[in-house]
């Protein structure tokens, strides 16, 4: 259909209107399946025709729609799963991994209709059943896929796939101002399912944030697990972001606020303690500022040397 090309060529508000019309025209040529109907309703809600549009949101919708419309019939179950809305954080699990029973150890107790779900995930499902049952199995399949996903992304190939997504910024940017929009990584706060939804980890400030979009708030954190982001940095140490001691200082008319400043000093003392401990083990330069300080020192030494030289000349 090529509406993405079409879409990029237009200015935001025109584009929304035009694309919407375009899609409607396209849809009228074929029957709309429930998912698509839901998508359209959702889009209608998102797009306030009198207002500016959440462009990112809309582009997300469009891309999803594009993918769906291109070939939803011949896609395998995992492909459909990955490309559905809200599942942007997932990467596709290799089929070999999924079919290796060893990798699924213990999951049969966690997942209802385990065998059917597994069949569905591996696209060998051929059971005739009513819609309710089908829905149940579909749900189990998603759960199973998520749990296997948590295991898969800690493998070499899974890490590589997630790394690609991380580099592209697929998981969003850190909202903390001092982190300068550092890319985030999805993580769980618990490895057991149904405990906590997925969170985003920033490697720069080492803290957890809630996903911006509510469609991610329903994804189980156990589908990513607590270990993944740490393993990623263990495996790719070059990617460990540079940490900084820079921070926000609350001020009133240019003056620091005593309570906050006292806490800040206390925190700094804790940091100094940590740096001292690390120095004892031979690890220096854990912060950007340490490296810069070192550079400054070298420069200063050079200057001093230069001055000495000048003195010598004068003395002669």
């Amino acid at each position: 259909m090529g509406y993405l090309e079409f879409f990029w060529a237009l200015s935001p508000l025109d584009l929304v209107r035009e694309t919407f019309v375009h899609i409607h025209a396209w849809l009228s040529e074929r029957t709309v399946d429930p998912d698509e109907a839901e998508f359209l309703a959702d889009m209608n809600r998102k797009v306030d025709w009198n207002d500016d549009v959440e462009k990112d949101e809309f582009i997300g919708l469009m891309e999803y729609f594009h993918e769906r419309s291109s070939s939803s019939e011949d896609l395998s179950w995992p492909e459909v799963f990955i490309s559905s809305r809200g599942n942007e954080y997932f990467c596709e699990i290799d089929e070999d991994y999924l079919t290796d029973r060893f990798n699924l150890t213990g999951l049969n107790t966690d997942v209802q209709y385990y065998q059917y779900a597994l069949d569905l995930v591996t696209d060998v499902f051929d059971l005739d059943c009513d819609d309710d049952m089908r829905e149940q199995i579909e749900k189990s399949a998603r759960h199973l896929y998520g749990l296997v996903h948590a295991r898969y992304i800690t493998t070499t190939r899974g890490l590589a796939k997630m790394l690609e997504k991380y580099k592209k910024g697929d998981f969003g940017k850190c909202p903390r101002v001092t982190c300068n929009a550092h890319p985030l990584l999805p993580t769980g706060m618990a490895d057991l399912p149904h405990v906590q939804s997925v969170k985003l980890y920033c490697g720069k400030c080492e803290d957890l944030y809630n996903p911006k979009s509510s469609r991610h708030a329903n994804i189980d954190g156990a589908y990513f697990g607590t270990s993944f982001q740490n393993i990623l940095f263990q495996v790719y140490p070059a990617l460990i972001p540079e940490k900084t001691i820079e921070r926000y200082q609350p001020r009133v008319f240019g003056f620091k606020v005593h309570a906050a400043a006292a806490l800040e000093r206390w925190q700094s003392s804790k940091r100094e303690e940590m740096q001292e401990r690390l120095r004892e083990t031979g690890m220096e330069k854990c912060f950007k500022e340490d490296v810069e300080l070192e550079d400054d020192m070298e420069e200063d030494e050079e200057e001093v040397a230069g001055l000495d030289g000048a003195d010598d000349v004068l003395a002669e």
């Binding site: 080492e206 957890l208 263990q234 206390w266 940091r271 690390l278 854990c286």
Partner: peptide, 26 residues
């Protein structure tokens, strides 16, 4: 946030160990 791998805390001495906890201390 306490970074963990398979339930074990990541040591401060690790290259990937926590460095920014001070920022969230009280």
């Amino acid at each position: 946030h306490e970074p963990r791998i398979y339930g074990f805390r990541v040591s401060e001495r690790s290259k990937t160990g926590p460095r920014m906890k001070w920022l969230r201390m009280r």
